[in-house]
């Protein structure tokens, strides 16, 4: 299955979902002018990936490591991020290994808490990493 890639802009994150390597990334600011136009194709791609795993099984698919490193994001983006992670949980339930790494600025407890809340709500474990903020 083809990878999904989107280069980051000032208001949209870098997106790279590559089944060939298992490296999935969402990195950067997320406050697109039109949230639905930006996020819906990505959600459709994840849905296709879910169906691909369901149809073909997990044997020839790499374990997924999804890294989420959000800078500033609007609340509409938060809803889509929730939906992506929920879909990743569904993929994990098919038997594929899925690791989610939530990266936040050092000392930014709000951002860490946002990740912890998502992890708890969706019932999927996150690993947390701190980076030095600007």
């Amino acid at each position: 299955m083809e990878a999904y890639r989107f280069n980051k802009t000032k208001t949209t994150p870098h997106i790279s979902f590559d089944p060939a390597t298992g490296i999935f990334e969402i990195k950067g600011e997320s406050r697109p002018e039109n949230v639905r136009t930006f996020f819906e194709p990505i959600l459709l791609w994840i849905e296709d990936f879910f169906n691909h795993v369901k149809t073909n099984g997990i044997n020839n698919i790499n374990p997924i490591i999804l890294t989420i490193q959000l800078g500033y994001f609007n609340s509409s983006s938060a809803k889509f991020i929730f939906d992506y992670i929920l879909k990743m949980k569904h993929i994990k339930e098919l038997g594929l290994s899925v690791t989610i790494i939530w990266v936040h600025d050092e000392g930014d407890d709000d951002m860490k808490l946002a990740g912890m809340d998502l992890s708890e709500m969706i019932e999927i474990n996150f690993e947390f990493q701190e980076v030095r903020g600007k």
């Binding site: 406050r31 500033y72 994001f73 609007n74 609340s75 600025d105 050092e106 000392g107 930014d108 407890d109 709000d110 951002m111 903020g133």
Partner: peptide
């Protein structure tokens, strides 16, 4: 400014 304070405020400004 402290990063957590700055980050909170920027999120509010954006919203």
């Amino acid at each position: 400014l402290p990063i957590p304070l700055k980050n909170k405020a920027i999120h509010v400004v954006i919203e």
